[in-house]
Design a protein around this nucleic acid. Structure first.
Lengths: 333, 333
DNA sequence: CTGAAAGCGCTAACAA
DNA sequence: TTGTTAGCGCTTTCAG
């Protein structure tokens, strides 16, 4: 039977009022040592745990955070989603907040009534939900998607800069024929990585023919097709930038299957700094995107906002960082 | 400002009692059409959403489910975890239950006070938590881990049978030299897959030398090492069974990198039926494990238990299914 | 330092 | 079909 002890049981056993019990629970100092001990004994005796619903109702605030994940195909089986879940989960555990998890296709508004704040893991066809949550007065923060025309927090990496960094590195190695598999371009991150990549090539006077740009969607499947197409070209690229490490890994696999070498025949740059890329046949050079920390940052932001701190930085843009490993070299002449 | 409308506001505007509003909210039929409309109008006007904490407190029950994930290294970046989260998330969305997410290293007891039931995604060094949750009277269900000495629900695949199926198939193709990369053997699933594999080989009189068994941990890293070791053997295997598809994929990658072919040189069987295995160079033959459905089943089980249905099947063992694709053939003689 | 009492927003008898 | 009323378990004034 689920017959939970209540604050009354504890109070009765400790022979104090429920108020005193409440004080002990909440670590309020104005309790005599004697009573404190009695209460603690009773709490232990009943294995008492306060009822959170009652606490929330009485306090009028809710220290749980909602994590909204778009159910966009494939997003779940990506490093991106997993790192965010992991990061948010850990941060909630540490800050003792409840994490309530929402999968959504963006169609109906999310119920912000049960949560103190919400984290959007990217915004893909669900901007309406952000607006709705905001309108209900719920603090929101979105990850990896800048939204400057709404009064919402965000924490994102500068994806344009990331794309530039990848291109710049490849060009500096002497590559003139560089191709890219993009991420999903309806995603802000995907579009900006491409933009930065294109920008830099143009600035350096390196042409980027259409057949060197394959519109992917972050999936390994696309990466495979892209790689096969690139390699079949009469004039194949000597370097490839993939908008995610997972795609880069797949590209690398295809290259090996064709009997070519990385970086000897083709140089490769990824995006994410996914640890899985360290132990393959060749460690991947990549643009680091600190997803785990972004997730933690989002939770901390909500935590301070919910607990009345007005001092939280609202909009954070992190600088990406190029991590040079073994997958790039100068092109053969 | 977060100034939420309450049931009182709605009642006042609709000029009815809060009870009537409550009835409309909860779809209780004894409300006149006229009043129903008035209430609905008022609800829409205020964009009113009931306060879940208050509902839970008043109802005395809690329709949210906790999902407990061991924070065992690597588990997060696995098909296993992702499918469970996805499955549980979807099922909760459909059944309108809240999903509260816990990451745990197993050390402190999980707080079952806020949830109506809890799902354990496998049990790895946290059996104590299951016992604790049970002791508090909370319905529990564990996924992919049989526990028969505790009064807990589970839904698992028959992993021993899965291991046997893989071995049987390989032997039936004529293989005499079959190796395996195991999963983490502290995991029930990992141990049983190996057990079934060994059993069947023994029954068929196929020897399994020590150097044909590599103790892995489900990680790609291990799979890579295992594959490299197998291939270096003076008498290398002609077939390999990997305890997860991800490991199988990595083994396949290594085989290709060495210039060998699947299945021409080496046959390969995985475990999971991970869709990622369909689009590689060779579609993987695998033992199907319906994780998504297991997750859904777990949620449904809790749903019926929480809502007072006594008719939920408590212990469910699913039969694994061998899915034959292209990664196996008879050995060259 | 302590406790009585008034809610928090909602549900569920019970009467009408 | 409707409304009155008594809680659900807790926090928080406010007196003492």
């Amino acid at each position: 039977m689920k017959n939970k002890p209540s604050i009354n049981d504890v109070a009765r056993r400790a022979k104090v009022s429920i108020t005193t019990v409440s004080r002990v629970i909440n670590n309020i100092l104005t309790v005599s040592a004697k009573n404190r001990v009695r209460v603690e004994e009773a709490v232990a005796y009943y294995k008492y745990r306060p009822n959170i619903s009652a606490q929330r109702l009485a306090r009028g605030l809710n220290n749980s955070v909602g994590l909204v994940m778009p159910s966009y195909p494939g997003i779940f089986h990506s490093f991106y989603a997993v790192e965010l879940i992991r990061g948010v989960g850990h941060a909630c555990e540490v800050l003792r907040m409840d994490l309530v998890f929402h999968i959504t296709n963006g169609s109906n508004p999310i119920n912000t009534n049960n949560v103190g704040g919400v984290i959007f893991a990217d915004v893909i066809e669900n901007r309406k939900q952000v607006e709705g949550a905001l309108a209900s007065g719920t603090p929101c923060v979105v990850i990896n998607h800048k939204i400057d025309d709404l009064d919402v927090g965000y924490i994102a990496v500068d994806n344009t800069l990331g794309g530039r960094a990848a291109a710049d590195y490849l060009v500096s190695l002497g590559h003139k024929k560089v191709a890219t598999v993009t991420g999903n371009l309806t995603t802000q991150a995907g579009a900006q990585r491409l933009k930065g990549f294109e920008e830099l090539l143009e600035e350096k006077g390196v042409p980027l023919p259409k057949e060197y740009v394959y519109q992917g969607d972050y999936s390994r499947r696309c990466a495979r097709v892209a790689a096969e197409q690139f390699l079949k070209l009469p004039n194949p690229p000597t370097a490839i930038f993939a908008a995610s490490d997972e795609m880069a890994l797949e590209v690398m696999a295809v290259i090996f299957e064709k009997g070519l070498k990385v970086p000897g025949d083709i140089s490769l740059v990824g995006f994410d700094d996914n640890p899985a890329c360290l132990f393959g046949p060749v460690a991947l050079t990549t643009v680091k995107q600190p997803l785990f920390q972004m997730a933690e940052g989002a939770v901390k932001y909500l935590h301070t906002v919910i607990h009345g701190g007005g001092t939280a930085r609202k909009k954070t843009i992190l600088a990406p960082e190029l991590v040079v490993r073994e997958s790039c070299s100068s092109p053969k002449k």
